[in-house]
Write a protein that binds this DNA or RNA. Sequence first.
DNA 1: GCCAACGTTGGC
DNA 2: GCCAACGTTGGC
Length: 136
Amino acid sequence: MKYWLVKSEPDVWSWDDQCKAKNQTTHWDGVRNAQASNNLKAMSKGDRCLFYHSNKERAVVGIVEVVKEFYPDPGDESGRFGMVDVKAVEPLKNPVTLKQIKAEPAFEQLALVRQPRLSVMPVDAKSFKQIIRMSG
DNA sequence: GCCAACGTTGGC
DNA sequence: GCCAACGTTGGC
C-alpha cells in the first residue's frame, strides 16, 4: 500500500463535506497540475491519503482511501487531466498542523514542506504513521 | 525551443 | 490582504 497527502481548501471542499457525501465517497477532481496529476495516476485502489486543509487551517484532518483509480475528468476540456475517487476512512482525533510538521526534523524531506504548492503528493509509510501517531 | 509575462497557490 | 514561489502561456 502507498500513502499520499491531498490538499483541499476547506471553503471549497472540506473534510466535513467529504463525510457528508453519499457513501462518504467523491471524485477528487480539479487537479490541473502535471506533477499532481502524475501522483494521482500513481495511486492504487486501497491506498491511503492524508486529507489536508490548506489556507486558514493548515492541518491534516482525516484519512481517505482510494476506491477508484485514475480516470479521465469529463470537466477537463483539454483531456489531459483526470481524477480518482476517494472515500472517508476516519478523522484524526486531533488535527496535525503544518506548524507541528515543520517543527519536526524527521519531516524535512516531506513534499508538504519542500513543495508548498503541490496539491497531491506522496508520503512515505514512516511519515504517514508518524503523523497518525501525532494526532493521538 | 526559449524565455518573459502573467496567473495561481498557499503560507504568513 | 500581501507576496513569494512556481507553473503555464504565448510571442519570437
